[in-house]
Structures are given as structure tokens and as C-alpha cells.
Write a protein that binds this DNA or RNA. Structure first.
Length: 829
RNA sequence: GCCCGGGUGGCGGAAUGGUUUACGCAGAGGACUUAAAAUCCUUGACCCGAAAGGGUUUGUGGGUCCGAAUCCCACCCCGGGCACCA
């Protein structure tokens, strides 16, 4: 019989569903193992081979855990809300509501075919009211706990997608989705106070077993800096300017201040600024500049002095000028800095351009390199003095001679500054001016606003939709295209937005923006545990039982998007008492990227691989194994058609071997084994290797070990029992063909995927003989087979007696002989 | 610029202080076949050599060590992340 995956794969997929092979008992599971993978956006033409790569890698791990006796829960769903899906619907000219149905059917059909052990009964689709009901509930909780707020602010706006974006969705000044250059807009938006958790998000990282690069990316994104806030008085004014600095020890070197164009002090001092028109012109221009324009200028420093405004350096009472420049960001720290041009490269550049004084307070140790130049000449040069390592303070009065660390504390204390920690992380802007998302469940009443009434004193007029009135259904709006006017298409549907004020009964208005897709995916894993629950977002008992998830797998591109948001939401839920963990995923592993012809797959390059045709031609088992054999799972690899053949041959050989050797022979007869010791030793080595490699996600080497074992079987023969062990080891990789052989050829009644995982017997790993490597001066000159009980003396003697060694050494007397137990003899002459 | 990965045969990769190139792909030779495909067997870094064997080789240069792809220093190249964050 021929190996025909087209026949056996659908057969077992159907049977697994009927027999509920992959449905754990969510309430009674004894050893729960939540094997979670990032669910796909069903936005494009279909499942991508990159998705399949990710899912297969996760599934193999889950299948092994199942065989090790865990109750593995491996759910799947669709992250179907959001701009991805909406843009796709626009492109193909379908309404997102209708497109969602099509995409859903197509995706689930494809996902069915890849042969993962999904718990198909517990699916989640983020665009269904029974799901987004609870996304809205989550928003209401954020509001109730003062983590959601509405504020007018400068935001990132994508002119193509016509919506606001969060900071995390802007990459290199461009929209993360479409690559359009993002511009700044002043808009009133809903945000979540993720910054409240900045410390916790950072500190918890240490305890997490996550891919290191993801942890580093999050750490950089959160961007914690220790420093101090120091107040500078303005001469002849009651105003002052607070600056944030990480180097308060260089305060005596501060020769001017710089404020950002957004800084309120500029407006406050307007009447005193002698050159106001020039200043006004500068700040207007600076505010309108987008990132691209800024980088096009090559970051050449620009700025204008606030003439007639002087600040007083609190350390030495010096009068120093104040400038406005856009190299200081309004959104970070206090929006103002003290400039220490001798020791900060940006300040140095600026000072040189505008001829501002430069004063060294930490002399470079290697000042000798610059000859005997006076400090004056030294800093007139183009070489930035930098910060002399371990150098001691000068020009700092009573602090002269102090080291940096001590001076930070002492000088801060001296000027009554405040030690402070700053974060780069900013709040998560959650509202989107698009159609395809969960409506934000808030109502605004104008009458209440005027009367200063509402649920939150800082946001009069705003009320959350009562929880019993959720979900706020997304209406079917015919023209769902973004309006571009800063409001969502929902704002055109009067029936939707016109409501009665929950407090005073006056005519009020619903919020018409929808929430960011990343909110949908920030809690989906919780919903998997009770997808049909109509009473509550989560099932407490199951949450306790199954979470935090044992393993989460997904792409590293979500390092600072999804993976940060999902942690934040878990921390909030924890603080509100809904879950008992702060971190939702104990272990996270980022898989590599599948590329094609050395380039990322993309439609524009025309190098996207669709898994369907490969599954149709070779079968899912072959494609699964091929993808896993390419390279280590965490590395990714280049997809090349030719390589698929190697795996196809391997599986055919497995099929042939099983059929030829075992189908006709009675079970108890076994078959002839020509070299029992050798083949058993190989078998148990393989069990050990495959077990360890799967644990490390080194699927490529596990597969290679299985190939070596099959080669051994073909050469030496094996027994039916031992071949059964091989099948079990292969089962996570090729679930269909192993099931077919296990049940049809071998006649077992139950699934191989519920068999127990093989355990190696150490007695077979003890070798009778060892190979001793012979070296002369570290160069290999031969090998010797010796009994495993060989002693150092025997090995050395045998080495010296070796013909080749004798010839190499000649008449020279060995100076030294290195012996590594049962491994190597190195003769030094 | 800063922070992470990485650089090994014709190719994907294996080896993290002790036999470089496991496993697979492609190649070459052979068997089977009227023929082809499929399958199987042999071979397989490079140079010298008939062979035994010797020499060279893990991006480049240096170092540590009896011994380095592996550890250390400097540099080059590729991929990814951050980027005027004070």
C-alpha cells in the first residue's frame, strides 16, 4: 500500500474530533497544561506558512506534554477585529461583517488541515458580541478603577488609515501596519494608564522565563532612568523651571537651560521675552514638524534663545540663558533640561552651534592625548570631551574631588532637588476612529458636563454604560470607511449614538470611537477557559486551575505591543481581585521568522508561500516536519521547495518499513534483530535526545535523531515494540501517519496521542567500548577503540604504541602527556 | 550612535574547550527499468598523493590554553530592536 496522506490525514482529523482526543476536562483536569499560541488575524488571503510554522512548533511541544500525562489545553481563535481585517474588507470590496464570516470559514478550514491538537470546542472570535461584550466590560472596569481617562493631547495620526495610533504602533515614524508616515494631531482621546504599572512591568521581567530578546525589548521600551528633578528660579520672576537630569553631579557644568516647544513657561513669560515673534515662529514650526521632517534635517540642532530671560543655577547662583529647542521633548521628564555641554553630546553640539559656554566638571583621564592644551582650547575643538571614567569633580566648589555617585546625592541634596525615576513608557491611547472594533462603552451628557456632574470629577459629563446594558452592539453601518475627520464612521449613525443620559435623562451622546484591536487580544486567553459564559468575563475556578499559562508561543514582533498590553491588563485584573496572578505567562518563547529567498515574505515581493498547496501535494505531516527541520524553532529559516523531498522520503520509508515488516507478522513473533545491543543503545539514546530537544524547542535536531534511528532500524532490524517507541517519538511531529500505523497496521484501539511518552533506560547508554582520540601537540593523529574500563596508564601506553603516533613523534621524547578520561590522549613533544 | 542575535562545505544546518561539517538537500557514479519517474547502493570540505598519509580550513587579525568554531581583545560584514528619552 502506498503512503497517501490525502487519504489518511482527513480521516484522522475527523476521528480525533469525534473522539474528542484533544479536549481536556476543563474543570477536572489533574495536571493542567495551558499550551497557548498567539491567535491569528484572519485579515489577508488566508493562513500564511509563517502562521503554520508558529502553530506547529507550539503543537509539538503540547503533544509531547500530553503524552507525558498532562491535560493539555491548546485552544485557537481568531483576532478578527481591527484595521487589518477592515482594510482587507475594503480592498476586496466586502463589508467587514460579511468578510468576517468568509474569513472565519476559510481560516478554520485551513487550521483544521495542519493537524494541530486544537481544542476545537473552545474557540474565541474577538468580533462576536459574546466576546466583545467582555472587552467592553474590561473598558468599564478600567474606567471605574481610574485607569481609563480622556484627554486632549498631541497624538500620532496615520493619514492613510485615518486613525490615531498608540506609541507602540509607530515604528520609525511610520504606521506599523501600512508604513505611512505618521503625523501629529491635537485630539481628545481615551487612554489607559499603563504608566502606573511601569515599575511592575519592568521589575517582574526578571522573574519571567521569557525569550531574552523580548525581555530586553520591553526593558528598553519601558526605559527607566534614575535621576533628579532640580528647580531653577527665573530672575525677576516668580516662575521657575524644573528640569529632569540623570546627572545632577554635573550641575556646576550647566551653562544654559533648554525647554521644549510645548513647555508652558514660554506662554507664561511671553510678555518678558524680548524676541517673542521669533520664538513664536519657532515653536509653531516645531510643533507642526513630523518625524520624517525631523530626521530629514539630519538632526541638526535648532533653537531660539528666550531673550531677556535668565535662570539662576541653584548650585552656584550663576545667571544662565534659557533657550527653546525641539531636541528637548515635551513628553518626557519635565519637558526642560539643564544643558551640560561638556558632558552631553547633544548639548555639546547645540552649544557649539550657538556659541554657548562649555565648562568641564569631569576632566577626561586621557586629557594628555590632547597635548597640553588648556581646557579652553580643548573644548573649542571638535572632539567631544565626554565623561572621563572614574574621574573626579572639578569647577564645583566644595564638591571638587568628589566621585560621580556620591556627588549625585550630595549635590541634589545641596540644591534641594528631588531624586526621581522617569520612564519612557507612555500611556496607551486606546480609541480608534474606525468602524471595525468594539464601540467604547461610554456616554457623554452635555447637560451634566455643564453642571460639572459625572462619574469622574476630572471628566464631567462622562458615564460608563451600565454593565447590565452591555454589550453595546456594533451597528451595521453601510459606509464603514474611515471618515478622516477625527471621528469614527459610527458618528454618522444617529440611531447608534443618540441615547438618554443615564444620570439626568437628557439627550446624550455615545462615544463613537472604537477600541484598539490590541485590547481584544489583551485578555483572550482568559476567555478560552469558558467561551460560552454569558454571566461573566471569566470563570474563576478555571482561571485558578489553568493559569498562568505554562507556555506561550508567538512572534517577537509583538515584544512591545501585545506582550506589554497583555501583561498590563493582567496586573490590573489582579489588583481588582479577578485573577490571582500578575503575570499571565510563566514561559514565553518567540519563534523565528520563515523567510523565502532571503527576504521576508510579503505580497509586494510575491514570495508568500501558501501552505495549502504543499499540504495538498505532500500532506500536513511532511510540511510540518519540513518546517521544523529547517533550523532551530527560535531561529526561523529559509523556505526552499527542494528540502521538502527529504522529509517526504523519510515518512515514506517509515511507512514502508512499518508495512513490510509488521503487517504480515504476528505481534508476538517480532522480527530478527541482528545486533540487539547496538540497536537498543541507539534507541535509548534517541529517546533521550528527542525528549531533551523537544524541551529546548530544538526540533531540527530531534528530527535528525529520528532519522538516524530509522537508518539504524533499516540496517539492523528491530522489534515491533521498539518500532512502537519510535512511532511515539515521531507522533508529535507527524501526528497522522503515526496514528495510522499505530491503529491500522499495529491494531491498537486507542490513539497514539494518548500513549505515554517513552522514557530512556540508562543501562543501554553505557558503552562497552570507547573511542580514544590520539593527538600529538593537539593535532589529531588517529583514534583507538578501547574497552570502557580503560585506565589512564593503558590508554597512554596504547597511544605510544600506535604506529602512526610512533612515526609522528619520531625520536623526540614526550614532554607531557595529557589524558582526558575515556576520551583523549594528547602527547606534547 | 546604542543594545541584542549571527557569520561553519555548493545549500539549510550540527557540534558551546577535546575526531569540524551529524542529519538533510543538491551533485557524481552505479543497480533496477525498453525508457523515465520513484526506489535502493556507493561517494561526498579543499589542496598534494596511486595509496598509506600529509597540509589547509569555522568572517579577519591577535591572545589564552597541551588543545579554540567554542573563552578573551580589536576589526569587518549580515539580520533585528531602540533612537535627540537629558
Amino acid at each position: 500500500m502506498k503512503y497517501d496522506p490525502r487519504e489518511i490525514e482527513p480521516k484522522w482529523q475527523k476521528k480525533w474530533l469525534e473522539e474528542r482526543v484533544y479536549e481536556p476536562d476543563l474543570d477536572g483536569a489533574k495536571k493542567p497544561f495551558f499550551n497557548l499560541m498567539m491567535f491569528p488575524y484572519p485579515s489577508a488571503e488566508g493562513l500564511h506558512v509563517g502562521n503554520m510554522y508558529a502553530f506547529t512548533g507550539s503543537d509539538i511541544y503540547g503533544r509531547k506534554k500530553r503524552m507525558e500525562g498532562y491535560d493539555v489545553f491548546e485552544p485557537i481563535g481568531l483576532d478578527g477585529f481591527g484595521i487589518h481585517s477592515e482594510n482587507y474588507a475594503m480592498k476586496v470590496g466586502t463589508h467587514p461583517v460579511d468578510q468576517a464570516k468568509k474569513s472565519e470559514a476559510h481560516f478554520y478550514d485551513q487550521l483544521q488541515k495542519i493537524g494541530n491538537g486544537f481544542a476545537w470546542n473552545e474557540r474565541v472570535e474577538t468580533y462576536k458580541p459574546e466576546y466583545y461584550h467582555w472587552t467592553q466590560w474590561l473598558f468599564v472596569q478600567m474606567w471605574k478603577h481610574d485607569l481609563a481617562y480622556r484627554k486632549r493631547q498631541s497624538v500620532n495620526w496615520c493619514p492613510k488609515d485615518q486613525t490615531v495610533l498608540s506609541d507602540e504602533q509607530v515604528e520609525d515614524g511610520k504606521c506599523e501596519r501600512c508604513g505611512t508616515v505618521v503625523i501629529k494631531k491635537e485630539l481628545e482621546q481615551w487612554s489607559f494608564r499603563i504608566t502606573k504599572y511601569a515599575d511592575q512591568l519592568l521589575n517582574n521581567l526578571e522573574k519571567l522565563d521569557w525569550s531574552e530578546k523580548v525581555k530586553i525589548a520591553q526593558k528598553n521600551w519601558i526605559g527607566r532612568s534614575e535621576g533628579a528633578e532640580i528647580e531653577f528660579k527665573i530672575q525677576d520672576s516668580i516662575s521657575n523651571i524644573r528640569v529632569f537630569t540623570t546627572r545632577p553631579d554635573t550641575l556646576f557644568g550647566a551653562t544654559y537651560l533648554v525647554v521644549s516647544p510645548e513647555h508652558p513657561i514660554i506662554e507664561n513669560l511671553r510678555s518678558k521675552i524680548e524676541n517673542w515673534p521669533a520664538v513664536e515662529k519657532y515653536i509653531t514650526e516645531a510643533k507642526s514638524k513630523n518625524n520624517e521632517e525631523r530626521s530629514a534635517e539630519g538632526r541638526e540642532k535648532t533653537g531660539v534663545e528666550l531673550k531677556e530671560i535668565n535662570a539662576i543655577n541653584p548650585a552656584n547662583g550663576e545667571k544662565i540663558p534659557v533657550w527653546v529647542a525641539d531636541y528637548v521633548l515635551g513628553s518626557y521628564g519635565t519637558g526642560a533640561i539643564m544643558a551640560v555641554p561638556a558632558h552631553d553630546e547633544r548639548d555639546f553640539e547645540f552649544a557649539k552651534k550657538f556659541h554657548l559656554p562649555i565648562r568641564i566638571v569631569f576632566p577626561p583621564i586621557d586629557i594628555a592625548e590632547f597635548g597640553n592644551a588648556s581646557l579652553d582650547e580643548f573644548y573649542k575643538g571638535s572632539v567631544f570631551p565626554g565623561l572621563g571614567k572614574d574621574s573626579l569633580l572639578v569647577n564645583s566648589k566644595k564638591f571638587d574631588g568628589m566621585d560621580s555617585e556620591t556627588a549625585k546625592k550630595e549635590i541634589t541634596k545641596f540644591v534641594r532637588g528631588e531624586l526621581k525615576t522617569q520612564f519612557r513608557l507612555r500611556d496607551w491611547i486606546i480609541s480608534r476612529q474606525r468602524y471595525w472594533g468594539p464601540p467604547i462603552p461610554m456616554i457623554f451628557c452635555d447637560a451634566c458636563a455643564k453642571a460639572e456632574k459625572g462619574e469622574h470629577k476630572d471628566m464631567p459629563g462622562w458615564y460608563a454604560v451600565d454593565e447590565k446594558d452591555l454589550p453595546v452592539l456594533l451597528p451595521y453601518v453601510k459606509d464603514f470607511r474611515p471618515t478622516g475627520s477625527g471621528v469614527s464612521p459610527l458618528a454618522t449613525d444617529k440611531e447608534f449614538y443618540e441615547v438618554k443620559c443615564p444620570a439626568c435623562g437628557a439627550t446624550a451622546r455615545r462615544e463613537t470611537d472604537v477600541s484598539d484591536t490590541f485590547l481584544d487580544s489583551a485578555w483572550y486567553y482568559l476567555r478560552y477557559l469558558d467561551t460560552r459564559n454569558e454571566k461573566s468575563a471569566l470563570n474563576d475556578a478555571r482561571v485558578k486551575h489553568w493559569l498562568p499559562a505554562a507556555l506561550y508561543t508567538g512572534g517577537a514582533e509583538h515584544s512591545v505591543l501585545h506582550l506589554l498590553y497583555v501583561r498590563f491588563v493582567a496586573m490590573a485584573l489582579h489588583d481588582w481581585g479577578f485573577v490571582d496572578f500578575e503575570e499571565p505567562f510563566k514561559k514565553f518563547r518567540a519563534h523565528g521568522l520563515i523567510i523565502k529567498d532571503g527576504a521576508k515574505m510579503s505580497k509586494s515581493k510575491g514570495n508568500v508561500v501558501n501552505p495549502d498547496e504543499y499540504i495538498a501535494n505532500f500532506g500536513a505531516d511532511t510540511l510540518r516536519m519540513y518546517l521544523m527541520f529547517l533550523a532551530p524553532f527560535e531561529q526561523g529559516g529559509d523556505f526552499r521547495d527542494a528540502g521538502v523531498l527529504g522529509i517526504e522520503r523519510f515518512l515514506k520509508r517509515v511507512w514502508q518499513y512499518a508495512g513490510n515488516k509488521f503487517s504480515a507478522v504476528p505481534a508476538e513473533a517480532g522480527i530478527h534483530v541482528s545486533s540487539e545491543k547496538e540497536i537498543h543503545s541507539l534507541l535509548h539514546k534517541t529517546i533521550k535526545k528527542v525528549t531533551e530537544d523537544i524541551e529546548d524547542l530544538h526540533y531540527n535536531t530531534a528530527i535528525s535523531a529520528l532519522m538516524i534511528l530509522l537508518n539504524g532500524f533499516e540496517e539492523h532490524g528491530t522489534t515491533k515494540d521498539d518500532f512502537g517507541i519510535f512511532l511515539k517519538l515521531l507522533a508529535p511531529f507527524a501526528p497522522h501517519v503515526t496514528e495510522e500505523i499505530w491503529r491500522e497496521t499495529f491494531g491498537h484501539a486507542t490513539s497514539i496521542h494518548h500513549e505515554s511518552w517513552p522514557v530512556h533506560d540508562p543501562k543501554w547508554l553505557i558503552a562497552d567500548t570507547v573511542t580514544i582520540v590520539l593527538q600529538v601537540n593537539g593535532k589529531m593523529r588517529g583514534t583507538l577503540q578501547m574497552d570502557a574500563s580503560v585506565t589512564e596508564e593503558d590508554a597512554k601506553a596504547a597511544a605510544l604504541a600506535d604506529e602512526n603516533i610512533k612515526r609522528t613523534i619520531g625520536s623526540a621524547a614526550p614532554k607531557k602527556i595529557i589524558y582526558v578520561d575515556k576520551k583523549l590522549v594528547n602527547i606534547v613533544i
